[in-house]
Simulated scan of single mutants.
Amino acid sequence: MAMDQKQRDVRRHEKAARLQEEDLRLKVRPGTKQALAELMQWAGIEEQGEALTLMIHRLHELGPDRALPLLEVPRHEYRPSRIVALAFERKSMLMIQQDPGDEVLTPQLHAPIHGVQSR
């Protein structure tokens, strides 16, 4: 006699508990999903969970010296063009002139301090 849905669920939960399985959920954007799909296609893997599990284990096998560089979060550096930098500086100066008080004043080198004699 075939098991009903409730019996299958109980059996599945018991097996998951025995194997200490845990659900890990991952939300991804389209680019990440596409990258995973391509990796799965290259390896001939049909299940996303299997692909992720294999990647985790293979990365771990590399050890910390070789795995950590692959896990670094990419940092994006923005370098404005000279024209943009000049425009920003001009706008900043206009804002300072309109509302002075927040600008940073750096001390002048070798300027005499009022009331203090230099030796």
Rank of each mutant, 00 (worst) to 15 (best):
W42R: 15
Y78P: 00
L52R: 01
E38Y: 06
D4G: 12
E47P: 00
R75D: 05
I96H: 06
R79N: 02
M3T: 12
M1Y: 04
K15P: 00
I56V: 15
I45W: 02
S118T: 06
G44E: 04
L52T: 09
Q98F: 11
G49M: 01
T53S: 15
P112C: 01
P69L: 11
I113N: 01
L59R: 05
R25E: 05
Q98E: 13
E89G: 05
Q98C: 07
P69Y: 13
I96N: 11
Q117V: 04
H114W: 00
L54W: 04
E14Q: 13
R11A: 15
A67K: 06
R18I: 03
P112M: 01
D65L: 07
G49E: 13
R29M: 07
R119A: 00
Q20L: 04
L19G: 00
V10C: 01
V73N: 14
L94H: 11
L68P: 01
P100F: 01
E77T: 09
L71K: 04
L59N: 07
L24F: 14
L68W: 02
H13T: 12
E89K: 09
E50P: 07
D9A: 12
D65Q: 14
G49T: 13
G101I: 06
L86E: 15
Q34H: 10
Q48P: 00
P100V: 02
I56N: 05
L24K: 09
A87E: 15
R66Q: 10
L54R: 08
D102T: 03
R25I: 02
G115T: 06
M55R: 01
Q97I: 01
R58D: 07
A16G: 01
V28S: 10
A16T: 06
E47Q: 09
T53W: 11
E61N: 09
Y78H: 09
E103V: 06
Q7K: 13
Q34C: 00
D4Q: 12
I83F: 04
R29F: 04
H60T: 11
E61H: 11
G49C: 02
Q41G: 07
A43Y: 05
M95D: 12
H76N: 04
S81C: 08
L26A: 02
L86G: 11
Q117S: 10
L52M: 14
E22H: 14
L71M: 14
P80S: 02
R12D: 12
L39G: 12
S92D: 08
P64A: 14
E103T: 09
G63P: 05
R90C: 03
